[in-house]
């Protein structure tokens, strides 16, 4: 058990497929809704409090040992967009591959058997954190940071945004990320007692709608 495992898991170079996903930023850039660092910050803040919170709570709940099948069903119900469900499962499958190579254990093998086409990524992330000896807050932090770092990196590539500006956005969001992480862990604790209905279900309408538009594009750089 080592807390440094958190650095391995949260590293943007951890080979789990995230680099090909923009978290909705590609669609928002094309629609003209992200044109500068301020827009990116607003986008990331919205994501943090909606999809991010949900992912953080799911990851924390999985790290606590809640049944991943129930959590996966809860993630499905919180993801009306079929394009986003597909993306979440693909990313989950890719993460599981990296996780099983990094922290091999029976629990991850079992997850691979239950979900040959992939479970929702935050659920896999939580179980990975668990396999790495990390706790629920670590899992929540990883999920939340990914929910904003993905769009930030993608926007640097899509808009040729100054990478220092994009990193500044992430730094400014850090205190809010702390707050959301606390809420996510608290909700996961509640779900341990009351079941998955205690998990947050916050949504950003444009994230869902634009994910469907994006999935229908004939040419795109990012998978979601």
């Amino acid at each position: 058990m080592t807390h440094a495992a958190l650095l391995v898991l949260a590293d943007g170079r951890f080979p789990a497929g995230g680099h090909a996903h923009s978290g909705g930023a590609e669609a928002a850039v094309k629609a003209g809704r992200i044109t500068c660092a301020a827009d990116l910050e607003d986008f990331c803040r919205g994501r943090l409090h909606t999809a991010g919170l949900v992912a953080g709570a799911l990851a924390a709940a999985a790290a606590l040992g809640l049944d991943p099948r129930e959590l996966d069903a809860a993630a499905d119900a919180r993801t009306p967009s079929p394009a986003l469900r597909l993306a979440a499962r693909r990313l989950g499958r890719q993460l599981l591959r990296a996780a099983r190579a990094s922290w091999p254990c029976a629990e991850l093998d079992e997850l691979a058997r239950w979900f040959p086409k992939g479970a929702h990524q935050p659920v896999v992330l939580g179980l990975t954190a668990r396999a790495a000896g990390l706790g629920a807050p670590d899992a929540a932090y990883c999920a939340l940071y990914e929910s904003v770092s993905g769009p930030a990196t993608a926007t640097v590539r899509l808009l040729s945004l100054d990478p220092f500006d994009a990193t500044g956005v992430l730094a400014r969001l850090a205190p809010e990320l702390d707050e959301v992480a606390r809420a996510a862990v608290e909700a996961a604790g509640a779900a341990a007692g009351e079941g998955p209905q205690a998990l947050p279900a916050a949504s950003g309408p444009l994230l869902e709608i634009m994910a469907e538009a994006h999935a229908a594009w004939p040419a795109r750089l990012f998978a979601s």
């Binding site: 803040r45 919205g46 909606t50």
Partner: peptide
């Protein structure tokens, strides 16, 4: 559970509710 969705908007809602990820 087939659908579980919450939407918060207006002053006092979590940040970004009127931004490019939510209502724009």
């Amino acid at each position: 559970t087939v659908l579980d969705q919450q939407l918060s908007c207006g002053p006092g809602a979590p940040g970004g509710w009127d931004g490019p990820a939510a209502l724009a």
